[in-house]
Nucleic acid binder design. Structure first.
Lengths: 230, 230
DNA sequence: CGCAAGGTTGAACCGCGTCAAGAAGTGTGG
DNA sequence: CCACACTTCTTGACGCGGTTCAACCTTGCG
């Protein structure tokens, strides 16, 4: 982890880009830029909340442990995303962990200052509220998927949403180098099962694989796997 | 469904109880009291958002369909809860359904008015934001449980949280008459499996059953079933 | 070159969802 | 008050999907 005071463009974060200038100025006084290498932990489940992180560049996974060996990746945070905003609730403890999966630059904002801002800046808290409403929507959809969708559908869903979030590079592959381990944790399954499912998807010409890269070929048929057939 | 203009005590709703008087007065002009019988639908997944509902009394289940026959109950809404607040996001469509499981009285507030209030009343949007943060926390924990916890643990978790939310009556039973079907949907399992699990729990002296009533005997051991053994 | 870390594959096991069928309640009309 | 239908409960048997374990094979790296 490396500190620096320059290079952070808060405009990228939607919470800041359209909000009152006072907040931007104020946050510039209180922010602290932090860098994390791949694999470094930003914060951990159970830790006391110290502040909130605005992702400037790079990627982090937001995950939750089960036992000592299992985890579930809740979401990925990229440019403009916010990390640790769950600290706002009543109990000031992070409910999830965040770990860099690509070299990460974030702006750290002290929680006290952030809370104070929210209480005076209506635009800010309104936007955060809307953001949360959307995350809740996603979260509830995922809960249903976890409960009723077979692994194949969950992998398809995982690939589709990764493609949407990270885009495709010139080869048409998902623009994120993700270990199979992490893909499995994101699809809420195991390494081996995800492996086999991807082979299946390859044989059905829905995706192709070279190395860690996965290219989505038939988005439509993939999407069909994610419906309950209503 | 039955309309009436009196008998709704918004003080019960934490969003109103401590907020500025202007909002309480304004909402009293815009609210509409609605009654729903057991089994009646308040709103359905996919419908356009019309407004937001404050639960005054009774109970509703918030659920999501999968295919034509499966569903997942996300949560239960009781006195003081809010329904339909997910409509605040960008796409104005309810992502879940809400159905009364006990005779329900709600205050309906038009979404336009509610949005306008949020944009001018900072206290209100701040509180809603905090509420969402807490719900997100719960939602993410549930996601992990769904992914990694076996059915027995999920049933235990379901019973514990029902006990917490609805309290216990004089017999020590969970203070909610819930069909086994609904309990299964809440534990994200099937009728038969939940049935068998409850028999197991009975034999292990963690709960007792008479009819639809379930009494929690050993809260501590139940809670043990809900951990991954860290 | 050798070890470590991840990739690949097969086989066994088992949790739990599914189906089926009978029992026991619950309501309804005659 | 009984007969009938209809839902909810209860139990057994079965089998599939998916996790787990274990072994072997790559690949990268010091």
């Amino acid at each position: 982890m490396n500190k620096s005071q320059k290079g952070c463009d808060l405009e990228k974060c939607f919470l800041c880009s359209n909000t009152v200038p006072e907040w931007r100025e104020a946050i510039n006084l209180h922010k602290q830029n932090l860098r994390f290498k791949k694999g470094e932990v930003i914060f951990s489940e159970g830790q006391a909340v110290t502040g909130i992180y605005f992702v400037y560049s790079g990627t982090a996974k937001v995950h939750k442990k089960w036992g000592n060996y299992k985890e579930l990746i809740i979401r990925f945070a990229t440019d403009g995303s916010i990390l640790g905003h769950r600290g706002l609730g009543s109990k000031m403890v992070y409910g999830v962990s965040a770990t860099a999966v690509e070299p990460l630059v974030v702006c750290f904002v002290d929680i006290k200052f952030f809370e104070a801002s929210l209480k005076t800046n209506n635009d800010l808290s309104y936007k955060l509220m809307v953001l949360f409403a959307e995350e809740l929507d996603i979260s509830e959809r995922k809960m249903r998927d976890l409960a009723h969708m077979p692994v194949k559908g969950r992998v398809a869903q995982a690939l589709l949403s990764l493609g949407e979030q990270f885009g495709l590079n010139k080869d048409g592959c998902i623009n994120l180098e993700l270990s199979r381990q992490d893909l499995a944790a994101f699809a809420a399954s195991t390494y081996e099962t995800v492996f086999r499912v991807i082979i299946e998807l390859t044989k059905e010409d829905l995706v192709t694989v070279n190395g860690k890269q996965i290219r989505i070929i038939d988005r439509k048929k993939l999407a069909e796997l994610t419906t309950g057939g209503f």
